[in-house]
Computed example of a mutant assay.
Amino acid sequence: MARQNCRNLQGPKPGGPRQAPAGGQINSMDLRQLRYFTALAEELNFTRAAARLAVATPALSRQIRRLEDELGVLLVERGRTGAILTVAGQALLPEARAALASAERAVAAARRAAGQTRAAFNVGYLPGFFDHILPGAVAEFRTRNPTLDALLFDLSAAEQMAGLRAGRLDLGLMAIAGEFEAGGLEKKVLGACPFEAALPRRHPAAGGDPLPLAQLAGEPLVGIAEEAIPGIETFTREICRWSGFTPALAQVEARGQTVLDLVGQGKGFALAPATWRALSHPEVVFCRLEPTPMADLCALWRAGDPGPLRRAFLALLGAR
């Protein structure tokens, strides 16, 4: 699959080695660069990421370039319809998220030690499902609670459940949440997300919209991992059964971008949330399905938690 690089580079392939700092040391990488990179990796679009960060697009591009120069690798390519993470970028993303989360915890610990105690409200969310309502709700929540640290953590469903049970998270936002009953958690359904067929661009059925799912019977399916969306395997089997066939699972992946990469390579089709259209993969076409499968969007919290802040936050989500 042909891709267009961010810059004209000679020699190394995208994601491959560039001129690393002398001695392999990292001299000036900072949290701002990691925050900018994480926003771009989640939005996969420079304009949207810049708007999310409230900075100019050229400023975002400069920080990404400086981070790449610091690390000595290319992290992001510019595709025809947006940004694409290289292999190096995909490897950096979870570590960047962990570093940012650790920094947030360090700030909170320092404030506690100095007697500047601020209450914290920690929200985990599954990327790609709540992007249309979460930023506005968080901004309003912070305005109404100026002495509160409202922190967001981009986590898989499995990581959210572990955080809720351990008391590190006050609220988790995910899809389906099919295994929550076993974990001492309570759930509220906030809405629903339609699932669609993600097909290789040159697939014969790519022009069908809506597309009968039965038309894809017998073709290999690129599945979404349970660790990303608990209950997704059962959900997938059921919607295929309704259409009269058993899915032929080719491969299972946790990250949406990886699932779409495999689809774009012709490894099979995927049953994916419609919100993944925002990932803008140049070799993937999304088609609505007939009938349309719908998956619950859920909020989870520890059973028995009275949670006045949780109720206030959920009310803001429900208003959007």
Rank of each mutant, 00 (worst) to 15 (best):
Q4S: 11
N5R: 14
Q10Y: 06
G15C: 07
P17I: 08
R18Q: 12
R18M: 12
P21F: 00
I26T: 05
M29D: 03
R32G: 13
Q33T: 05
Q33K: 02
Q33M: 14
R35L: 12
R35T: 11
R35F: 02
R35S: 13
Y36G: 03
F37S: 05
F37Y: 11
A41D: 06
E43V: 02
L44E: 05
L44W: 04
N45T: 00
F46S: 10
T47L: 11
T47M: 09
R48F: 09
A49T: 08
Q63C: 11
R65E: 15
D69H: 09
E70A: 05
G72R: 06
V76T: 04
R78T: 04
G82W: 15
G82C: 06
A88L: 11
A91T: 12
A98L: 14
A103Q: 13
A106H: 14
V107Y: 10
R112Q: 11
A113M: 00
A113V: 00
A114P: 00
A114M: 01
G115W: 00
R118M: 07
F121N: 01
Y125W: 14
P127Y: 02
F130C: 02
V138T: 13
F141V: 01
R142G: 05
T143A: 09
R144N: 06
L148I: 13
D149H: 03
A150S: 07
L152K: 10
L152Y: 08
L152T: 15
F153D: 02
S156M: 09
A158G: 03
E159Q: 13
Q160S: 05
Q160T: 04
M161G: 03
M161N: 08
D170F: 05
G172V: 07
L173V: 09
L173S: 04
M174F: 03
A177R: 04
E179V: 10
F180P: 00
A182C: 04
A182S: 08
G183R: 11
K187M: 14
L190N: 07
C193L: 15
C193V: 15
A198I: 11
L199R: 02
R202E: 09
H203R: 00
P220S: 05
A225H: 10
E226N: 09
P230S: 13
I232D: 01
I232T: 05
T236E: 13
S243G: 02
G244A: 04
F245M: 01
P247V: 00
A248F: 04
L249W: 09
Q251E: 15
Q251L: 09
R255Y: 11
G256D: 11
V259E: 08
V263H: 12
K267W: 08
F269I: 10
A272I: 15
T275P: 10
A278Q: 12
L279H: 10
L279C: 09
L279I: 03
L279Y: 12
V284D: 04
F286E: 03
P293N: 01
A295W: 02
L297F: 06
A299F: 09
A299L: 08
A299S: 13
R302V: 14
L309R: 13
R310D: 10
R310I: 03
L316T: 09
L317C: 02
